[in-house]
Every structure is written in structure tokens, then in C-alpha cells.
Simulated scan of single mutants.
Amino acid sequence: MSAPNKSYDPVEVEALQPEVVERVRDEALAAIAAADSLDALREAKAAHAGDRSPLALANREIGALPPQARAAAGKRVGQARSEVGKALAARQEELEAERDERVLVEEAVDVTLPYDRAPAGARHPMTTLSERIADIFVAMGYEVAEGPEVEAEWFNFDALNIAPDHPARTTSDTFFVEPLAEAGAEQDAGLVLRTHTSPVQIRSMLERKPPIYVICPGRVYRTDELDATHTPVFHQVELLAVDEGLTMADLKGTLDHMVQSLFGPGMRTRLRPDYFPFTEPSAEMDMLCFHCRGESVGNPDRPCRTCSSEGWIELGGCGVVNPKVLVACGIDPDRYSGFAFGFGIERMLMFRHNVTDMRDMIEGDVRFTRPFGMEI
């Protein structure tokens, strides 16, 4: 039986020889110093400080040494591994600092660049103009009234003194939601998409007691083809005043105030005789051309494209409320009288802003709405 190997010299183990440990340490330190990125440093760490690195393998050899030889070998290898660990930590701190400085430069935010990369929208000019018109009359003491867009025939036609054989009640002019009333049946049997906002006036007279002063803006429907000057869906605003002693003079003064509020001082209106079933007498309302103010009439040196040198622009219909309409709503025509008028808001928008194609108003293109701004 052989005796214990008490004379074993750890220097004879190649991995633990001082010069080998020193060389492996120097190679590790050189690789760490040469790492120019965090990725390269991770590779160097795996190669020189990982579980399969030369120093890690040398450390495993220490356990096979006799007790009296382990202290010196462990101290030598431990010191080398400590130097490599400190070098790794220092180099990582340097590379992270370089990375942070590079990020500050490469990913810097230029606060002078435009922040609104997405194009901003704007309120539609139809909305702005509708609210502006309503504000004019609210300031005069009127109330904004609304009603359903799907109406019974009675509200849309009969109560407004529009006869059953009137052309407006045919399918070529009106969208019917339910079929036309059959002969002999009640005329309110049919449902239509309202062709004007006048049904709101009827509802207002049924729900309120005179005096009544209401403004009725809203969407209406006609069987028109979509083109530059027509659309099957458009907006109207109508006004109704019912009180004791109202006359055409009150109507004229109200119209003058409206056009002056919308187009500036000096504007005025004129009335031309016309016929509407729901007003008597009835008139077409014209306003002075806001562009030439009538100076183009008979003046070939100053033609006006807005009014075709006529000096006036047709705006809408108006008149004194027909007594038959008052009776249909339960109002005594011997005591009360009233006046009403209505016009298309799209048409007003075209006048005020020289819009030439009505299709631009409904296509939703922000290039059309944005120039009008965000006026409230």
C-alpha cells in the first residue's frame, strides 16, 4: 500500500503554474480593455470569466490538491479572478456611460420642430354658420326649436296648407319612409323625411301659447341630384313669430337686421311678391349684393360675378303666416298674426365665402374646412 502524496507540488499542475495564471489573467484583461461595445464586453466576460473560462477551470483544479497546497494556489487564482472581475465592472461602467452620451446625441429631441405632425381638423363651417345665425336671433329674444327629421305627412304638408295634389307631395320630390296614404285614408298615414324645417314651426305652435318667437335650424331632404348647386341632404333655418299685431313691416325689419348682422352694416333687403301655401301674402326675399353693394347695376366698367350685375341676391321665401295654418294649430287668427321666413344655410355659406361647389361641403376634406378656422 502506497503512502499519501505529501510531497505533491501544485506548481507541477500546468493550469495552476504562476506564469500560466498570470498569462490567462493578462489575456482576459486585454480582451476586456479591447471590448468597444457592451455586446463585445459580454462576449469577453463569457470567454474569460464564465464557467468554462481558463481561470474557472484552474479554480476547479484546486480541490484536487493536498490541503497544504490549496492555500497558495487558491490565493493566486482568486487574485487573478478578482482583477478580471474589477476590470469587467470598470469597463462596463465606461461603456454604459459612452452609450448614454451617444443616446443623448442621436436621440435628441429638437423642440423647434413642428409638434403637430398629424394635420389638425376644424369645425365645419356649416356648424359655425348655423350657430352664428341662431345667436343673432337668440339675442333678439327668439328660442331655438328642434323637431324630428322623420315626419308625418300632416306636419310636413297638411298643417302647412299644402294640398294633397301639390307636386311637392309626390315621390319625385319627397323621400317617403312609409307609403303614401291611400285614397280616402287619413293624410297623416305616410311618413316622410322632412322636406323643410317648417314642421318644427307647427310643433312649436301646438306646444306653445302665443306669443311665439322661435328659430328652427336643421337638416332637410329633397330628391335632388348631387351637383355643384344641389344636394339631396341640406340645411335650412326658418323663423316664426306669432303675436298680436305683427305685420310685414316687422318682417322687413327683422330681415334687415339679420343681413346686417351677417354681412355688415349698410346691407338691406327687398321683398318681391310670390306664392307659398303657408303664407299670405308671400314674398321672395332678396338682399343687397354684399360684393358690389348694387354699384354694378348699369355699370359695364364694374361687372359683378356674385349678383350678375343685378345688384340683388335671392336669399329665400317669407311672408305673413296663412290664417289656415294658425287655425290648424289652434290659434285664433282674429287675435294673432305672424310672419315667417326660411333659407338654405348652404346657400348662405356660398354667398359669404365664395364657395362655388356645394359638394365641397359634404366630402369631409379638411382642406376645405381648415381655412374657416375654429371660430366659436
Rank of each mutant, 00 (worst) to 15 (best):
P67H: 01
G85Q: 15
D116F: 02
V109L: 13
H124Y: 11
P125I: 14
V103Q: 10
K45F: 05
A120N: 03
E96Q: 15
S53G: 03
A90K: 15
L88A: 09
R60D: 15
V103R: 11
A80V: 00
A64G: 15
Y115T: 13
P66G: 03
V105K: 15
D110F: 10
E98A: 12
R52H: 12
Q92K: 13
P119G: 02
R132Q: 14
A80L: 04
P66Q: 09
P66C: 00
P54Q: 04
R117S: 06
A80M: 06
Q68T: 02
V77H: 06
R42W: 13
H124T: 06
T112D: 07
A73M: 01
S130W: 03
E96A: 12
G63P: 00
R42K: 15
A69F: 03
Y115Q: 08
R42M: 12
A73F: 01
D110S: 11
E61S: 15
R91E: 06
A71S: 11
P125V: 11
L95W: 09
A44Y: 02
M126G: 10
K75G: 09
L113M: 15
P54K: 01
G74A: 11
E106P: 00
L88R: 05
Q92T: 10
I133G: 03
Q92F: 00
P125G: 09
L57I: 10
D51F: 14
R70L: 09
S130Y: 02
R123W: 15
N59G: 12
L129Y: 07
A46W: 09
P114R: 09
V84T: 11
P119I: 02
R81K: 15
V105D: 11
S130C: 08
I62H: 05
V84P: 07
V105T: 11
A64D: 14
R60C: 01
Y115K: 14
A56T: 11
R52A: 15
V111D: 08
G121H: 09
D51S: 14
T128W: 01
A89N: 08
E93R: 04
I133E: 07
L88P: 04
R52N: 12
E96G: 05
V111W: 11
E107S: 13
M126P: 01
P66A: 11
E83H: 08
L57K: 13
R99I: 05
A49S: 14
L57W: 00
E43N: 03
A90F: 04
E101I: 06
D100K: 13
A72S: 09
P114L: 13
E107R: 15
G85H: 10
A87K: 07
Q92M: 08
A90Q: 14
K86V: 04
V109P: 01
L57D: 08
S82K: 03
D110I: 10
L129K: 05
A47W: 07
R60N: 13
R102H: 07
A69W: 01
R52E: 14
L55G: 01
T127R: 02
A90L: 10
A44T: 04
G50M: 07
E96P: 02
I62Q: 05
E106Q: 06
K86G: 06
V111I: 14
R99K: 15
A72W: 06
E96Y: 09
R60F: 07
